[in-house]
Design a protein around this nucleic acid. Sequence first.
DNA 1: GCCAACGTTGGC
DNA 2: GCCAACGTTGGC
Length: 150
Amino acid sequence: MPAWLMKTEPDVFSIRDLHRMRVSPWDGVRNYQARNFMRAMAVGDTVVIYHSNAEPSGIAGLAEVARTAYPDHTAWDPASPYHDPKDGPAIARWSMVDVRFVAEAKRFLPLDQLRAEPQLADMLLFSRSRLSVQPVEDRHLAWIRSAAGM
DNA sequence: GCCAACGTTGGC
DNA sequence: GCCAACGTTGGC
């Protein structure tokens, strides 16, 4: 089963917010590569939740895909911070999925620790640092689960 | 289709 | 708040 990593700024939406909501749409992704990865997701896929722009940044928990990709209507809403003036219901260029809370990391994994781990050296997190939705290898996921206690 | 200008991400 | 990396836009 494929696994993914999705970034969120905890000041905006954190693993605890997801815990509280249980299921949440993952809106606001405005990058084609990230969008295409979301479109490839299946219900039940594991999602590693990564806190970016945080102190510290790092892996904060686990979620799973609860609904496959559907149009991200926040792009059509002029009042939304994710508004895309070039988009509309007839175009629907952006997608989102729903994610369901699975676990908060018992041990938060800060970026420093991830970078220092040789087994994670080839994670896209480091080579494609600006990609907010990305696939995660099984062996990386196994290491993350074990290190975070989840 | 190239590429310079511009905007955004995200670590620090 | 700064700035490097890098994705996107738009003129040509």
